[in-house]
Design a protein around this nucleic acid. Structure first.
Lengths: 334, 334
DNA sequence: CTGAAAGCGCTAACAG
DNA sequence: CTGTTAGCGCTTTCAG
């Protein structure tokens, strides 16, 4: 393509510089070049450019579940910050699988992305992947899920506080027997459980082991877990669910059993996914400002990528806030 | 990196071939190379490789809205087919904006993706983008939305039939006054409207212009449109909504007005998004096999990319099917 | 302000 | 089976 641009009688170099409006090119030549480039509708080959500059202006965004609109919103936030800075996000979906995640990161590395934003599906303690990243000096920031044993940039929620806030709210609403459908065995799931425990302890309520049942990420697991919970006696009158999809499944199970939400059982989730308001019973939740998480992560990553020397590690927590809807509102207040 | 591999005393070429298990390398040398490469944990630089092979094994997946789980599911389907073939999908979100879409496609082109799968946000008649693609001979397949005036590979739904099926179902359920909240002014929105009209005509029902109101893609537009519809007299007793998010919004409006779904107003959407079953009233819908759309598109694209000569254009329609849930079930039968 | 030379990391084509 | 030569499309460096 450049060859063709040489029908202006200038050297290849002149064109190259003109296209990147390098300082030392006369306005006149630049204009001629730009004009011709438009006529030929030539686009510089970024792959060749990257080859020599060692910069792709691509960042990998590794997400565990696109179906969960929480992550879709994070992605939006990331793109919003990145695009104006000339970067572009490449989204990859790991479907909550640690191996897939490792493979995807490899791919992004061989494609030489400038940085990574990862909501990791690695089990806690699985640090291999992050060791690799550190060794290769690829800037990255973790979002949403802390990985135990990894020192890295992080942007997300204080999950223990989140758990305590949600649980506390149920107690405030008059629930005496609060259960928890916990999430997966990762940093987030564990921290939320810890928050649940803390809130109960703080209010002098006893923690019953059989009030803590295992869910995962999805609504089907919430549904199953709730059915289990309905069989325990005494039956809980409030349930804090790991996240909104799980909570939605739980609501379904309660209604199917002929009970009412929130009168018989109050329910709260977390994440404030977009459709929470449209569910069977509009869902109370903790809003995590998902878009802000994405934006902040993008900003932080840019800092790292731009920095000459590896900047020091940061952990940024985005404040979350209680959103009360029908699923937990048991009296006129709050 | 290759230099380092030369401490085996073999030439650079030998290594290059060994890594791609080119036929003419002795098993022994290959093993030595592979071993050393692992020790150094070397990864070939795809960017350099692509530069000479002119293949990146990357395909761009351009989607208008990640929040809509329909597209998230399509993405899943695409990835499922692509990965085993050595390709990888790069997802970009256009947020339903035609300009953003054009910019994103440009980016993908300068990054030299091997092909594109696009659910386009171009207005019908806006063919410029596709002209460019044709001129540059980039293989691509359109999904979900036909663009008027573009001859291209397509995988999606027969939207007119879909509209007729949904509308017909409402009539079957005993609705006498069926309205439609139409989608955007694109191929899909228009075809579904056409199907709505066809079904009414076929059953000898009159088409009232004020029963057709404008929505867009999202639930908020469905909510607003429904409120408008509630004010028309006589009030409709059945509404076919452009898609599930719109329908979810519509349900909310009906309930807020103190009416019942489906007794007073039956509602049906389209797309069968994942959470449809968990909504205020479990939503009847038309399932479009979103994952299959993604898989099929990926297969078709691979054919095109592998083909020496530009294969001829194909249009593939994935059958859709009625899913009856509470929002439209007015009698024992379905 | 403009240009010539060298090379980024890899592979295709051909020769040994 | 192994190695040599050339070059992908661009930019960096340095000399006009």
């Amino acid at each position: 393509m450049k060859d063709i641009a040489l029908d202006l009688g200038v050297s290849l170099m002149t064109v190259s510089k003109a296209l990147r409006n390098h300082s030392d090119i006369s306005q006149q030549t630049r204009d001629r070049v730009l004009k011709r480039m438009r006529e030929l509708n030539y686009q510089p080959d970024w792959i060749a450019r990257s080859m020599v500059t060692r910069r792709t202006y691509l960042v990998g965004l590794v997400l565990p579940d696109l179906m969960h609109s929480f992550f879709a919103e994070v992605a939006k936030g990331v793109a919003r910050k990145l695009t104006p800075l000339g970067y572009h996000a490449v989204i990859l979906n790991t479907e909550e699988d640690g191996d897939t995640e490792r493979r995807h990161v490899e791919i992004l590395l061989t494609r030489k992305v400038d940085g990574l934003i990862i909501a990791s599906a690695q089990r806690s303690g699985q640090v291999e992947l992050f060791e690799t990243l550190r060794r290769r000096e690829v800037p990255y920031v973790l979002i949403d899920r802390v990985i135990h044993g990894v020192e890295a940039n992080f942007v997300g929620t204080k999950d223990e506080d989140l758990g305590a806030m949600a649980t506390g709210h149920l107690i405030d609403q008059g629930c005496k027997k609060v259960a928890h459908i916990r999430g997966p065995q990762n940093g987030t799931g564990t921290a939320r459980l810890k928050g649940y425990r803390r809130a109960l302890t703080k209010r002098g309520m006893t923690i019953r082991p059989n009030y803590i049942v295992s869910g995962q990420y999805g609504d089907n697991t919430g549904y199953e877990a709730m059915r289990k919970l309905l069989k325990t006696s005494p039956r809980p009158d409030g349930v804090f669910c790991y996240n909104d999809p799980v909570a939605a499944g739980a609501v379904k199970a309660v209604l199917e059993a002929g009970l009412r939400v929130p009168e018989d059982i109050a329910i709260i989730g977390a994440g404030n996914v977009h459709y929470s308001d449209l569910l069977r019973v509009p869902l109370s939740t903790i809003d995590q400002s998902s878009a802000t998480i994405g934006e902040t992560a993008a900003e932080l990553l840019c800092e790292c990528m731009e920095a000459k020397t590896p900047a020091e590690m940061k952990r940024i927590f985005i404040p979350s806030r209680l959103v009360v809807r029908d699923s937990s509102r048991r009296n006129g207040t709050s």
